[in-house]
């Protein structure tokens, strides 16, 4: 029940926060189209501000921190092949040529522009396609989330505690367009006591066998008995008979 309330309240709260602004939206669109002042204002929008809006409208926000910097927005737009003719510059005002270029790139229609080096050609293409883009607002209205958005989704290398990500993700994430699945093993706990002798043995196993220490007491080799026969027959010792010598075995 508690979780239910939390889930409902969270989403509803966000929806409620959005509602008052939604009510103003229709009026804003109309005002932008009708008022020359609004158009003038739109022309003064910088590329930094425009990039911040673009990443949201094109569905790229989820690849970025909650409050991305302008450069982070530029980076992800570049990764999706969207950039003004001379690259992104935070303080540059958005020109009509660049606005047309960005709209066409975001729509994926760049192959249909006759002369990509000429700003007029991008503008002409949009006009021929019947796409209105006189203001930033109109331009954004023509856009929708990219069909194949790419971003650093599977692997986030940020070390910032407010931006980092654990490698806990569904197994179908992509890293800037290429699938990179997450490890299936989210957690691990394999080092148990029964494994300990084996693991320690492996970790401590030296790469080169050290020399054996010298023995504390020299080892005693086995002995052999050599009998030099001096005369025949008979046993018995002593006298001028056989000589018996005990020596160390030379073969040892």
């Amino acid at each position: 029940m508690k979780l239910f309330l939390i889930g409902t309240a969270t989403v509803a709260l966000i929806a409620n926060l959005a509602l008052p602004a939604l009510a103003q939206e229709g009026g804003r669109r109309g005002a932008q189209q009708a008022s020359p002042a609004a158009e003038e204002q739109a022309k003064l929008v910088t590329e930094g501000e425009f990039a911040q809006w673009l990443v949201r409208v094109l569905g790229l926000s989820r690849f970025l921190p909650a409050s991305p910097t302008d450069l982070e927005c530029f980076q992800i737009l570049m990764q999706n092949g969207i950039m003004p003719r001379d690259g992104w510059q935070k303080d540059n005002p958005v020109t009509m040529g660049n606005l047309a270029r960005i709209v066409v790139l975001a729509l994926g229609k760049q192959a249909e522009v006759e002369n990509p080096d000429d700003d007029e050609s991008w503008v002409a293409y949009l006009k021929s396609a019947g796409i209105d883009f006189g203001t930033i607002g109109e331009a954004i209205e023509n856009l929708e989330p990219l069909p194949q958005p790419v971003g650093p989704e599977a692997i986030v290398t940020s070390t910032d505690p407010l931006a980092k990500l654990a490698r806990i993700n569904p197994p179908d994430n992509q890293q800037i367009g290429a699938d990179l699945s997450t490890l299936g093993r989210i957690s691990g706990r394999v080092i148990t006591k029964p494994d300990l002798p084996k693991i320690e043995q492996e970790i401590k196993k030296p790469t080169v066998k050290p020399p054996s220490p010298p023995p504390m007491t020299p080892s005693i080799p086995p002995f052999v008995k050599i009998i030099f026969g001096g005369g025949g027959g008979g046993g018995g010792g002593g006298g001028g008979g056989d000589v018996e010598i005990i020596v160390a075995d030379p073969g040892v």
Partner: peptide, 8 residues
């Protein structure tokens, strides 16, 4: 997506 003048 809902984009508004001051909100998204």
């Amino acid at each position: 997506n809902m984009d508004m003048e001051q909100s998204f």
